[in-house]
Amino acid sequence: MNQSITRFGGRAAWLCLFFVLTHCGPPRRSEWKLLADEFTASWKAAGIAEEGSVSIKDGEITLHPGQPMTGVRFDPWKSADLPRMRYSIEYEAMRLEGNDFFGTMTFPVNEAHVSLVIGGWGGTLVGISSIDDMDANENNTHGNAYFENNRWHKVRVEVREDELRAWINDKLFVNVSTKGHKLGLRPGDIEKCAPFGFASFATQARIRSVVIRRL
């Protein structure tokens, strides 16, 4: 009996050690501040033809006017272990000059990418591009808002299994089911902002306080 107890005790000890090694490691990261010092060097100009200059200083991105578009891209989404589903994004955007989109964000939804357009098509359009090959001005995420220049606008996006939601200045603008729908980017320069980035169109824009969180 004593030998049986000893064998059982030894086996139990190994099981406990296995549990500790596999379940009690470092906690999984749940938040990323993408304009903090550790990530600043990971932002690159998108490489759009005739784009304006891009600068990052004091935790803010500035997109200078392009001919007509300027973009910036955060490359190491996968290597930084950022999520592609069940996550939220928060940031603030400001249009300093111009009257078109200024805080448009491209982001992953599982293996696809879409853009949240802010202030497009003459300055007021909000929506997701693209769903079922329809741009923000064509699909049912289409909305309108007035965006005052030289004012910070707070944005929050939630990416869930079958749903996208987006708030601007705490007002819900996008609440759409993605189940059974094709998601993708509008063909063209915006594709250079994938997997994650921001773009402006004939405007000068600033971006700050970019935070990703697991849901």
Rank of each mutant, 00 (worst) to 15 (best):
A80N: 13
W167P: 10
G71W: 03
P68V: 01
R156M: 12
A93C: 09
F198C: 01
G188N: 00
G127Q: 06
W43F: 00
G119S: 03
M134H: 15
T40P: 13
T70N: 01
A80K: 14
A41M: 09
A41V: 01
E60L: 08
A13L: 13
T124A: 11
R208V: 11
M85P: 08
N169Y: 09
E50G: 04
L96I: 14
F107A: 02
K44R: 12
G66R: 00
E161Y: 09
S200E: 00
F39E: 03
P76A: 06
K171R: 15
I168D: 11
A112I: 08
G59S: 08
Y87K: 07
Q67G: 14
G123Y: 07
W43L: 02
V159C: 06
R95S: 01
L15C: 10
N150D: 09
R29G: 05
L116I: 00
T203I: 04
P68R: 01
R29N: 06
T104H: 06
L164S: 05
G66L: 02
G71H: 00
T203D: 04
H153P: 06
M134V: 11
S4W: 14
A46N: 04
H23D: 08
G120N: 03
D75H: 11
Y91F: 09
G188E: 01
V159D: 04
R7A: 14
C24R: 11
G52C: 08
A166C: 06
T141A: 00
L125H: 05
Q67L: 13
Y91N: 08
M134T: 13
A36Q: 04
N137V: 10
L21H: 07
V176K: 15
P83N: 11
F173H: 04
P65E: 08
A80H: 14
T40A: 14
P65V: 01
F107K: 02
I128Y: 04
F102G: 01
I48F: 07
V211L: 09
R86T: 10
C193I: 07
F102L: 02
L116N: 06
V174Y: 01
I128C: 02
L215V: 15
K78M: 14
S130T: 05
L21W: 04
I190T: 06
H142V: 15
E158I: 14
M134G: 07
S42I: 10
K57S: 12
A13I: 03
E148I: 07
T178R: 01
W14E: 06
N144R: 13
